[in-house]
Design a protein around this nucleic acid. Structure first.
Lengths: 227, 227
DNA sequence: CCATGTGAAAGCGTTCACAGCG
DNA sequence: CGCTGTGAACGCTTTCACATGG
């Protein structure tokens, strides 16, 4: 089709989920001074199928050269642009418990432009403390701080019982992207994006397959996620 | 009873991924003294579609009563059994950095029978320290401790460069379920299950949608940058 | 009756296979 | 020629709609 850069935008979720994989592979290849990469090589580095790589990349536009491959640098830029990774995002962590603290310190976020600029908790002992470079505020300051620091995304790492209330308050304060680590179903207005991460789910799935192996030993060739 | 309860086992991944959701909803309902739940009610609590609930549950067998619903307690037991959650799993955390520490302390694991019984790191300052109830060992003790403590599952929370090596050593020591938090593609023998969790991916997806919203704003101002 | 359980239909995502182009 | 880009086939997941049975 035409080469309009920002034309038919809505990328399929499945593709979206793999773009970061390609990005990592491309950065790695860049570090090895590889200027061009074939879909085959890229696939190997990302741990997926070559046809899949081509399908995914074709969704962004035609950035490959037939008979040659993809320009490492160009492709990296295009994916970055599509994912909006040029932009910096100000992120809040609500719930400064174990998980909240770990996520607040997690390098993987800041490396990709997600800056944790504030944390919130209800424990007065934590107020004024720090979570990485972010100050821990009382929950009651949420609305004010969200606005002052231009926070657009939030991680919820509170107990499940309060997660919905937190979400409501975040949305009221103007946050429209929420990543929920609490084991609770959140209902929000349609203009807000919510995603859920349940760390225990993956372990449970692994447990299931182990269970299978022990009972049956049918040796299921796992086609695990990503790998 | 008569027929072997564990008959046509291999549950679809998509179903497997939702069973924990139902489990949570059922426990919650149990706490409210609800003896029976319809697929409709269960669906609402789990945040999914009612038809989906019925399809999923029918995979486990016929544990519902037509015209009535599902027996909360019975269903809970059946899901637990299917997921192998009666059994306890001994889990190792490799990499006692921020993420490793948070995961080691995470309640959600131990609550569901996943006990972190050992941690490993290369930093001598951490040796002998604790991560929750688990002792932190030098990486060189990995094989010995894995065998002594009957560890069957491991979380990899190391830097990406060493993740493959760690995986190899874990597998050699007898671990056959690995949950990888490092941003690296792991290659393992076919009898080993590997799953990957990339915490930044979810944030990136949220970022993408925010990016979309900002670009698309139906504002009359024609500021959209072409090429 | 009423809610489950399930064929059938619709929708997505992945893989295949090859046309098309550098 | 070699590799991309893509229509078409395939397989998995979700949704629909209703027959079935307590």
């Amino acid at each position: 089709m035409s080469a309009a850069p920002s034309a038919a935008r809505p990328l399929p979720e499945a593709t979206l989920r793999r773009l970061p994989l390609y990005l990592r592979a491309l950065v790695e290849a860049s570090g090895e001074r590889l200027l061009m990469l074939s879909s085959e090589e890229l696939a190997a580095r990302a741990g997926v199928n070559a046809a899949q790589v081509r399908k995914d990349l074709s969704q962004l536009g035609s950035y490959g050269t037939r008979g040659v491959g993809y320009d490492t640098e160009l492709l990296r830029q295009q994916i970055n642009r599509q994912l909006g990774l040029n932009r910096e995002h100000n992120v809040a962590v609500v719930g400064a418990g174990n998980l909240g603290q770990a996520l607040g310190h997690y390098r993987g976020f800041s490396e990709r432009g997600f800056n944790v600029v504030a944390a919130f908790d209800t424990d007065p002992a934590k107020f004024g403390g720090r979570l990485g470079s972010a100050v821990i505020y009382p929950l009651s300051d949420l609305a004010r701080v969200v606005r002052e620091k231009n926070i657009t995304m939030a991680l919820i790492t509170t107990p499940a019982q309060v997660a919905q209330d937190i979400a409501d308050r975040l949305v009221a304060a103007g946050v429209n992207s929420v990543l929920n680590f609490a084991p609770a179903v959140l209902n929000v207005a349609p203009h807000v994006s919510v995603r859920k991460v349940d760390l225990a789910v993956e372990l449970q799935i692994l447990g299931y397959y182990e269970h299978l192996r022990n009972d049956h030993t049918p040796a299921p060739t796992r086609a695990a996620a990503g790998s």
